[in-house]
């Protein structure tokens, strides 16, 4: 890639980034263009990756070598598209049921072992090691067990929550709140990190190497909004007059 292409790329990336951010001030045509480009480019990326990584090596090449068996799953895959034609949409069931059966068959043993048995084991196991644990570790293990049981009671809908059951499930809510609080705190950090990433890129494109792309485009957007506000104000006055 030549230097020129890198500069063009910088201007394009800075432009698209600022166009998308401009929505925060006000909806505008530049944002809409970038938004629609995103939809198309995202789909285009998925399409090209699927074609080059799966369709060509896994379907086209084997078929051209005479391995015709791969045609069966390909037809099942294509059958999904009959969803869009109501009259024959039932054909898509062949593809869906084939995927669902396999997925469910795998999910049952994995779910049972990983998220059910192992979690119960993980809650109980520390109590077999009490002798080697510090009092604080014993307290923590007991708290995990107590908390997990309370939360489970909270999710236990088969019986009406009243009396002792209500008290236990209420305690469960507090454990959930701590978990959600931790999740919220972390979400703040995650979102800021993403914004940092874009700002960092914009800062890079503001350099002389990219011919100050960020500054120029940002100024352009500000001028656009000013001019737009001016014209909008005038047309309002004209209507009033």
């Amino acid at each position: 890639m030549s230097e020129t292409w890198i500069i063009i790329g910088g201007w394009l990336a800075a432009g698209l980034t600022i166009f998308l951010f401009s929505f925060l001030y006000k909806d505008n045509p530049f944002f809409k263009i970038a938004e629609h480009l995103y939809l198309g480019a995202g789909m285009g990326w998925l399409f090209q990756v699927s074609v080059t990584n799966v369709w060509i090596p896994k379907i086209w090449e084997p078929v051209s070598k005479g391995e015709l068996l791969v045609i069966i799953p390909s037809i099942m895959g294509l059958s999904l598209l009959t969803q869009f034609i109501p009259k024959i949409s039932w054909i898509s069931r062949y593809g869906f049921t084939f995927m669902m059966g396999y997925g469910s068959g795998l999910a049952i043993p994995a779910g049972l072992s990983t998220d059910f048995m192992s979690q119960i084991e993980g809650t109980i196991k520390p109590f077999s090691l009490l002798a080697s644990m510090s009092p604080f570790a014993i307290f923590n293990s007991a708290l995990i067990a107590f908390g997990a049981i309370c939360v489970l009671f909270y999710f236990f809908f088969s019986v009406e929550h009243k009396g002792h059951l209500k008290k236990v499930s209420n305690v469960g809510i507090y454990f959930l709140m701590i978990y959600f609080g931790a999740a919220f705190g972390n979400t703040v950090m995650a979102r800021f990190s993403l914004l940092y990433g874009r700002f960092d890129d914009l800062y890079t494109f503001s350099g002389a190497k990219y011919l100050y792309a960020t500054q120029f485009i940002l100024t352009g957007m500000v001028i656009y909004f000013l001019v737009y506000a001016l014209f909008a104000g005038r047309s309002k006055n004209a209507i009033k007059a």
Partner: peptide, 15 residues
């Protein structure tokens, strides 16, 4: 960071 707290149980069990 969003999904980090959800992995606590797997870390505790050493899964």
């Amino acid at each position: 960071a969003i999904s980090q707290p959800g992995y606590g149980p797997y870390l505790q069990t050493n899964q």
